[in-house]
């Protein structure tokens, strides 16, 4: 006769999953805080060029974007086009776009508004020059040539 009697049922203790949701909620809030919601889906292909002397853009809420590149849908041709908000635009539309962007901001912040040019590296400078001239006319002087950080070689 065995000295120690084995218990009849050997139930494995279950893992308590009650706090699992708390942990995941924590993750969720973390991601919500550090990310920004994508505002527009791109309809032009933008692969920004590399540069070494890049600076971070401060105050993301004060940045408006202008995208320039080849349309992703080849039905719209292969010529570089401008995208403002969610649609194709011409250089003439920039004035209205900037005015609207300005009106959406606080009066104090308006002079700090930066226009970030996200231009595909294959684009020719002609269209970029036109955009810059238009921005000068409108008075949006602060611009940012968007670029990827390149590791300094040599």
């Amino acid at each position: 006769m065995p000295r120690f009697k084995k218990s009849e049922k050997r139930a494995t203790p279950g893992i308590n999953t009650g706090s699992m949701s708390d942990i995941i909620f924590m993750f969720l809030f973390f991601f919500m805080v550090i990310t920004t919601i994508r505002e527009s889906s791109l309809i032009v292909r933008v692969k920004v060029p590399q540069a070494t002397e890049v600076a971070k853009l401060e105050r993301k809420s004060l940045v408006s974007f202008i995208y320039v590149g080849q349309p992703t849908d080849s039905r719209y041709g292969t010529e570089s086009r401008i995208q403002l908000n969610n649609q194709f635009a011409t250089v003439a539309d920039i004035r209205e776009f900037i005015t609207r962007e300005r009106e959406a901001r606080d009066e104090v912040d308006r002079p700090l508004l930066t226009t970030s040019l996200k231009v595909d590296e294959e684009t020719r400078m002609g269209i970029v020059t036109d955009i810059k001239q238009e921005l000068r006319q409108v008075g949006a002087f602060k611009i940012n040539y968007s670029a990827r950080k390149a590791v300094a070689s040599k």
Binding site: M20, I24, M32, S116, L135, I143, S146, K149
Partner: peptide, 30 residues
């Protein structure tokens, strides 16, 4: 509950982007 919050988490991961905008700052002349 964990499943639900996982679903929310994936949703936010997909709709948001972390990319910090880098670039060369310039000031245009008037």
């Amino acid at each position: 509950m964990a499943d639900i919050s996982f679903l929310l988490l994936t949703f936010f991961l997909l709709t948001s982007s972390i990319d910090t905008d880098l670039g060369i700052l310039r000031r245009l002349p008037p």
